[in-house]
Amino acid sequence: MTSPAIETDGLSKQYGEVVALDALNMTVAQGEVYGFLGPNGAGKSTTINLLMDYIKPTSGTARVLGYDPWNDVVACHQRVGICPDRFETYESLSARRHLELVIDTKRADDDPRALLEHVGLADAIERPAGEFSQGMEQRLALAMSLVGEPDLLILDEPFTGLDPHGVALVRDVVEAESERGATVFFSSHVLGQVDLVCDRVGILYEGDLIVEGTLPALRDTCDLSSDATVEDIFMRLTDGSAHAGEMDT
């Protein structure tokens, strides 16, 4: 349990001239719930794409649960659960088939029905995912991420497209997984949800991690009162107005 869940050192990604992520140094300890926040286009998805080996870095290094995320993919992903952002499910396959794909590849012994019950989709277990609403697809992806009791759960924009029940579900799942001992790393541009679930937050802004810490510590840093929200902190740190319009609260 000595190595951090996530550790990046100078992690950068450039697309031609465009810097998507600029020398990110970040450490997420095992067992914590870390909210990775920032407006759209700040580099949150780029970071997760790098950590999941969806893309390769331009420079810098990273460790995920002690593994090199680009060369030890099999060992690393065996212990990671991912709920991606901007995905479609397999339209001709049932919810059960989706879970079986993950369960069998991870060689886990989870029961697909129990996982679907956990996310409120048990009724749809035999239905092809092509019939699902966006919220149902999101729930299915969440169930897939929980297979095999991962040590690290990565949720990319998990609140997107969910109704209030769905949002509450994600919060419950995060709490339960954290209680089990898992590390939870999630990204969000919806700042309103995160106060309730995070131990620590990092705020990414234009490819840079501008601040990181527990909410009380951040409030102190920013000289804000104890009822200040993540939004207040964000606005203070980015000088208020510039990108405030892009924030979806």
Binding site: M52, D53, Y54, V73, V74, A75, C76, H77, Q78, V80, I82, P84, R86, F87, E88, T89, Y90, H98, L101, V102, T105, K106, A141, M144
Partner: peptide, 15 residues
Amino acid sequence: TSGSLKFLLGLPLTR
């Protein structure tokens, strides 16, 4: 294109 590849790539599999 659809993004479902993120599920496969997220599994303990090499490319």
